[in-house]
Design a protein around this nucleic acid. Structure first.
Length: 586
RNA sequence: GUGCCCGUAGCUCAACUGGAUAGAGCACCAGCCUUCUAAGCUGGGGGUUACAGGUUCGAUUCCUGUCGGGCAUGCCA
């Protein structure tokens, strides 16, 4: 176990506490890193917390605690400040030793045991495969991927999953849209419904089908429209009529059109996400829930537990028993299950797969949905506290001060692919991560496309490139070669000459990384990593401008190169969590 | 109407289970490159944390109310 100054200080304080107030010896010791350097390296508010129960002045309690502190070579001094804080000032050696630890742990530095190997699933994106992913999906993808990696770093056994909505009406509409475009290629003009999928990718799929199978799926427009109600007054009924006509006329061939559209869109979606650096361990098919009888099984179980009733020909789940504002239909009067029904089965399936913890990442428009899913899980006898739902707020696109309106059906939206092409993956991933998930994000395309240095990702990557440049110098290369030769004793670097104010600040920042990772994982807040990296980069840029790393004195140069190498390592580890690349030159 | 989220510097956002003088970036002003990458650094002005109460040693944080913004409130998915 490497020496950990924080635990050391914590132990010192615990010992003092058991001497001053034995009856409170079990009080948890919380040490925070003060915002101001003048407040020391660690601060404890222990005395303030005890003041009430001990009915004593917090400053006096703090004084007694400080008097009882054992002398330690790692602590220069401890003093009482403010209302009753105890500030600890570490010795330089206690602060600089983190450099050796980082160099020793390398890619592992920052990983923790919070998750304790528990099985955790993160389900995210899960967009309907009815068209290209847009910038809103991109946010969910970036958030989910970073969160999943973050949780893996925190010690969870993480599984990343995409729920494919390959059953249901939206897919039927996509199949229909494709078929209508296909008919149009042959001059069969069925007026294209306003509520069908308008995008050009639908026409592309129609062309592919024509190229592969010529006129096999051709039917006259008159036959298609024969029994279809007009688009007015009910456009949805019109659409359903067209779907029915397609299924009737095409028979077995309908499945081909439907499947072709699904396969194409999923392949496109998958490639898009892979290019974005977002990987999944499992693509879970909604249709498989029906094929394997999971939906029927889940419904039977709800019914058996007495949570289902019949009304107006439909089956209702009594979700009001679980705090929902109204009951919900799970099976319509036409016998078809609702999306809610398959989602219940899906979540039941997740529990049956033995995950200790589930994280669902949904768009903010789904928040009314949380209560009913939790209710269903409770009704099924599952412990719904294992499920955590994160709502990712919307992304609004702007051209300067003008808002871009987005509509999936209308085909008027900016795709993730377009955005990536304009600003690059790194800027995309980092930009998405600069806001908390529950905060609406305004994405200014003009700014993002301007290639200016306004985007903070450059600032952080630049720090990495600068360090690499220094390490690529002859002296830097010699240092790295020496280290490679010394793998058996990675901690043998002499760090005694690290003592400057900026060096100590940099060390403190590096030492905080594992805590930042753990806190970010606990809060499902990967944005904290982005903010940390920015602060770390700022600390380094400041140091770099104030001090020279490649000085003549060998001991000092070696120590500073070690510090630089440690910084490079932590930047890389942070980039890994965020899915951002670490360029060696810019 | 009801429920959830949000309101912090001119703008975009932070603030570690409630902590010390509320912090960054952008924008604005003034400086720093014949020496390791100036996509950088140093300094400066900028705030009644929407408003009013409450809880306590202490509130941007927790509670109540008011005002303002977003989202939801389908036998769509």
């Amino acid at each position: 176990m490497p020496f950990d100054p924080k635990s050391h200080v914590s132990e010192l304080l615990t010992a003092a506490l058991s001497s001053v107030a034995p009856e409170h010896a079990s009080t948890a010791i919380l040490l925070e890193r003060p915002k101001q350097a003048s407040h020391g390296d660690f601060a404890s508010n222990l005395a303030l917390q005890l003041a009430k129960t001990l009915r004593a002045n917090p400053r006096e309690i703090a004084q007694r605690l400080v008097r009882e502190l054992a002398v330690s070579p790692w602590v220069d001094k401890a003093e009482v400040a403010g209302a009753g804080f105890i500030n600890f000032y570490l010795a330089a050696a206690a602060k600089s030793q983190v450099v050796a630890e980082i160099l020793s742990l390398g890619d592992e530095y920052g990983k923790g045991r919070l998750g304790n190997g528990k099985k955790l699933q993160v389900e995210f994106v899960s967009a309907n495969p009815t068209g290209p992913l847009h910038v809103g999906h991109g946010r969910g993808a970036a958030y989910g991927a970073s969160l999943a990696t973050l949780l893996a770093w925190a010690g969870y056994a993480v599984s990343r999953e995409y729920y494919v909505n390959d059953a249901g009406r939206q897919m039927d509409i996509l199949g229909l849209s494709t078929w209508l475009r296909y008919l149009a290629l042959f001059g069969e003009q069925v007026p294209f419904p306003a509520n069908a999928y308008q995008g050009d990718y639908v026409i592309d799929m129609a062309r592919q089908i024509r190229a592969a199978h010529a006129d096999r799926y051709l039917h006259p427009a008159a036959a298609v429209l024969a029994c279809v109600p007009p688009p007015e007054p009910d456009p949805e009924a019109h659409l359903d009529g067209l779907i029915k006509a397609a299924k009737d006329l095409l028979g077995e061939d309908w499945a081909y059109i439907h499947q072709h559209a699904l396969t194409e869109q999923m392949a496109d979606c998958r490639a898009d996400l892979e290019d974005f650096g977002v990987h999944f361990d499992m693509w879970f098919s909604e249709r498989s829930l029906f094929d394997t009888g999971m939906v029927a099984k889940a419904m039977e179980r709800l019914e058996h537990n007495g949570h289902i009733y019949l009304q107006n020909g439909a089956k209702w789940f009594r979700s009001t028993s679980f705090g929902d504002e109204k009951d919900r239909v799970v099976q319509r009067d036409n016998g078809l299950y609702t999306y809610f029904a398959s989602d219940i089965a899906y979540h039941l399936n997740k529990f049956e797969r033995g995950f200790d913890q589930l994280v669902d990442i949904w768009g903010a428009d789904h928040h009314g949905y949380i209560q009913r899913v939790r209710g269903a899980l409770q009704a099924l006898g599952c412990d719904d506290s294992r499920l955590n739902v994160v709502l990712v707020q919307f992304v609004s696109l702007w051209h300067g001060s003008e808002k871009v309106s987005m509509s999936t059906r209308g085909g008027q939206y900016v795709t993730l692919r377009e955005l990536r092409g304009e600003v690059g993956n790194d800027a995309c991933r980092f930009f998405y991560m600069l806001r908390k998930a529950d905060q609406a994000l305004d994405f200014d395309l003009d700014l993002a496309k301007s290639q200016s240095n306004d985007n903070p990702v450059y600032y952080v990557q630049y720090a990495h490139a600068r360090v690499c440049s220094v390490l690529a110098s002859p002296q830097g290369a010699a240092f790295l070669a020496q280290r490679t030769a010394d793998v058996a004793m990675p901690a043998s670097v002499d760090l005694a000459s690290l003592s400057g104010e900026r060096e100590m600040a940099l060390c403190a920042r590096l030492a905080a990384f594992p805590e930042v990772v753990e806190a970010a994982a606990r809060d499902y807040a990967p944005h904290a990593i982005a903010f940390y990296l920015r602060e770390l980069a700022a600390e380094f840029h400041s140091y770099y401008n104030a001090e020279r790393i490649l000085v003549d004195d060998l001991a000092q140069r070696t120590a500073r190169l070690a510090l630089a190498a440690a910084l490079r390592q932590v930047l890389r580890n942070g980039f890994t969590i965020l899915g951002v690349s670490a360029p060696e030159s810019m």
